[in-house]
């Protein structure tokens, strides 16, 4: 019994604090996430900020992509954005931006694109978020404001489908309120689905026993505890 509790203490790694610098820029945050995506994974990057992670994915040695990007509109092996003569109106990403195809790419229809998510074939997806709750609930599709036009796209399918759901967001909203919350006040996208939250100030691992802080930037763990109303393990 004693051995078990001491093992548990030993396994909780110390939080790496980078208090001597400011928070991460969007590109730096994208690089942090890219570093954590295992080579060989099948990955969906949500529209908006997560698309920047494509520039920071593990490289391959044989000319093939190190990570296979999935796009909900029917493609595996998506390449970088297309420019100039490479623009093809029949080849776009989920944000409807023209993209390119990499060697080994495959096309399929929409029902297959989403079967890949729900069926548990996709290793990682990275989504933006308004709020993430301590139990992994995700709110990223609606602020619930009256009069707003609801639009969900593929967010709910991705949230419950990918084996690991990572969130990429700023830790604080423009009004200073934290986006890691005890429970979401915005309408939910998925229940208990987020495993990691990557933010400009800190990265969080969301486990059944609570929210673990992995690394901080421009803020200490003690300061983080003061600003968030969520119990933090670290």
């Amino acid at each position: 019994m004693t051995a078990r509790s001491s093992a548990s203490t030993a396994s909780s790694a110390a939080v790496t604090e980078h208090a001597d610098r400011g928070p991460l820029s969007t590109d730096e945050l994208a690089a942090v996430i890219g570093r954590d995506i295992p080579p060989g994974s099948y990955v969906n990057l949500g529209i908006g900020q997560p698309t920047k992670i494509a520039d920071h994915l593990p490289a391959s040695e044989d000319g093939l992509p190190g990570v296979i990007l999935h796009t909900e509109n029917g493609m595996l092996g998506m390449g970088p954005a297309a420019h100039g003569d490479d623009i093809d109106p029949d080849l776009t990403n989920a944000g409807k931006v023209p993209v390119t195809e990499l060697p080994g790419a495959a096309y399929f229809h929409h029902a297959d694109a989403f079967a890949m998510m729900r069926g548990g074939h996709l290793d990682v997806c990275v989504l933006g978020a308004f709020q993430v709750a301590a139990n992994g609930d995700l709110a990223n599709w609606s602020t619930g404001k009256p009069g707003a036009i609801p639009a969900v796209g593929g967010a709910m399918d991705l949230a419950i489908g990918a084996k690991d759901v990572y969130v990429m967001m700023t830790l604080f909203a423009k009004d200073g309120s934290p986006k890691i919350v005890p429970s979401c006040t915005y309408p939910l996208t998925g229940v208990g689905c987020v495993s990691r939250a990557y933010t400009d100030h800190a990265t969080f691992d969301i486990q059944p026993d609570g929210v673990h802080v992995l690394e901080t930037w421009g803020i200490t763990l003690a300061e983080l505890r003061e600003r968030l109303s969520v119990d933090l393990i670290g």
Partner: peptide, 26 residues
């Protein structure tokens, strides 16, 4: 939800009367 939109049409085309889907629960 986009996947439900596709799957609901797939079900119609395949003669399926309905299906249980994990998307949007809660």
């Amino acid at each position: 939800p986009q996947g439900n939109l596709a799957e609901r049409m797939r079900a119609a085309g395949a003669g399926i009367g309905g299906f249980y889907c994990p998307t949007a629960v809660g």
